Simulated assay, not measured.
Amino acid sequence: MSTSDPRTPRIPHTPWGRAIALAVGAAAIVAVVLLAFVWPTITSTVKDVPIAVAGPSAQVTAVEASLDKAASGAFDVTRVDSRAAAVDLIKTRDVYGAIILGEKPEVLTASANGVAVSQILDQIAGQLQTQANAQAAAAVQQAIAAGRAPAGTVAPTITVTVTDVVPLASTDARGLGLTAASFPLVLGGLLGGILISILVAGSWRRLAAVTTYAVAGGLGIVGIMQGWFGILQGNFWINALAVGLAMFATASFIVGMNALIGRAGIAVGGVLTMLVGNPLSAATQPLQFMVAPWGAIGQWFVPGASATLVRDLSYFPDADTLFPWLVLLAWSAVGVVGMIAGHFRNQVVVEAAVEESLPASAATEDAADRIPQPA
């Protein structure tokens, strides 16, 4: 005996084809998300690492040949005249390290560039030291054989010094905090944009909410990262401006897209930020390691530009930061224009809907009211 109420409407079953298609589509989305995050790491290789080399011309040529033979295409070598010139290039982030040849060989690193590059340069220092000692020992043996040195002469031990020109802060010696902070910045911009799009009505109110969110977020995040944990370095207010602008750029873009095309705009902003910009941001590895030209393309998105800007402001104040600032400003401008354009578009839609809903007589009267009357 059935106990169901005959007055209760029966919910129709989902067609089999649609159910299977939804399941396959959901699995495909998961695969795309996985690919977006794993692909840049799996395909990364050591290539085109910019380094400087200073020293006697013959030795520089020999080192270039040795590096190319050991790992062809791994390094982009720039010749400089002195150690000071190499240090300047490191501080402006035109190169990630340097090899100084001569009587006192030295390898210059910048751990603030990331652990991966520092480890590579440490390996180079070890290889140079081994080669230099082997060459010195061979030269002594030749001298003994030629009678220019007495038997039993021992070659002097050559030590290659490793100097960290731009070290990380002692509070973040391995750079884990600086690397980990990039994702919360992305997530923060997304969260603010989505919540404001859904919960705040009115274009100007949304713009005010996004601005307030960015200011509060920039001050709060930098207060934690710099004032509390000491991860960030440099000028507090400039760092707060950079972080706040990054959050504003992402949030305003999502709100602007939502104003222009509705709820689909939130998805567009989320996909471009999380699935395109974030994996290509090079926040965890040098952009040169990524398959070309994706590393460079990633710097045109908010996650890449903000990660580079925050690192440069903290550890490379001499570096040229104009490009990331312009990228963040450009995305912010797109978002603001989208909000304003969506405001006027919605006004037109509402006015059209009101006119269509008016009865014919009311519409006629409304039109008559618009006819200019004689003074």
Score class of each variant (00 low, 15 high):
Ala330Arg: 07
Pro293Arg: 05
Leu35Val: 10
Ile120Met: 13
Ala110Ile: 04
Arg93Asn: 14
Gln373Ile: 10
Glu64His: 08
Ser182Arg: 01
Ser197Trp: 01
Gly217Ser: 02
Thr45Lys: 14
Gly220Arg: 00
Ala31Val: 12
Val38Lys: 04
Leu232Phe: 06
Arg174Asp: 14
Ile158Phe: 02
Leu178Pro: 00
Ala23Val: 15
Ala367Asp: 08
Val336Ala: 15
Ser252Asp: 06
Val160Met: 00
Ile51Met: 11
Thr45Gln: 14
Val80Tyr: 12
Gln59Met: 08
Ile100Phe: 00
Val336Leu: 11
Leu287Ser: 15
Leu108Thr: 11
Arg93Thr: 10
Ile124Pro: 08
Ala353Tyr: 05
Ala137Gly: 02
Thr153His: 04
Gln141Lys: 14
Glu356Ile: 12
Val154Asp: 03
Ala240Ile: 01
Gln288Glu: 12
Gly244Glu: 09
Val336Cys: 09
Gly152Val: 11
Val291Cys: 03
Phe301Leu: 07
Pro12Val: 13
Ile29His: 03
Gln123Arg: 10
Leu358Phe: 08
Phe37Ile: 06
Ala209Gly: 05
Leu128Asn: 12
Trp204Phe: 14
Ile297Asp: 00
Val255Gln: 06
Pro50Gly: 03
Val154Tyr: 02
Asp76Gln: 11
Thr163Trp: 00
Glu106Arg: 09
Gln288His: 07
Leu34Asp: 02
Val53Asp: 04
Gly189Ser: 02
Gln129Gly: 15
Phe316Gln: 07
Val200Glu: 05
Ala264Pro: 10
Thr157Gln: 14
Ala169Glu: 00
Val49Cys: 03
Gly265Asp: 10
Gly218Thr: 01
Ala333Cys: 09
Gly298Lys: 12
Ser111Phe: 01
Ala249Thr: 05
His343Arg: 15
Gln288Phe: 07
Ala214Glu: 00
Ser203Lys: 04
Ala201Glu: 08
Ile11Thr: 13
Asp172His: 06
Gln59Pro: 01
Met339Gln: 09
Ala54Gln: 06
Phe344Ser: 13
Glu355Gly: 06
Trp237Leu: 15
Val310Asp: 00
Trp300Ser: 06
Trp237Ile: 13
Leu313Glu: 08
Asp5Trp: 03
Thr43Trp: 05
Pro293Thr: 09
Trp228Tyr: 14
Ala31Cys: 05
Val276Pro: 07
Ala155Asp: 11
Ala110Asp: 08
Gln119Arg: 13
Leu187Asn: 03
Arg311Gly: 05
Phe289Leu: 05
Asp81Ala: 15
Ile42Arg: 12
Trp237Gly: 04
Leu287Pro: 02
Pro150Gly: 09
Arg148Lys: 14
Ile158Asn: 04
Ala86Asp: 09
Ser203Gln: 07
Val334Asn: 03
Pro40Asp: 07
Val337Phe: 09
Val115Cys: 01
Val63Thr: 14
Phe75Arg: 02
Leu326Ser: 07
Gln129Arg: 04
Pro156Thr: 15
Gln135Ala: 14
Leu199Val: 06
Thr61Gly: 14
Thr41Phe: 09
Val33Met: 10
Arg83Trp: 04
Met339Lys: 04
Ala26Phe: 15
Asp81Trp: 11
Gly25Lys: 10
Gly256Met: 03
Gln142Leu: 10
Leu34Ala: 12
Leu272Lys: 03
Leu358Ser: 07
Val38Phe: 15
Thr130Glu: 12
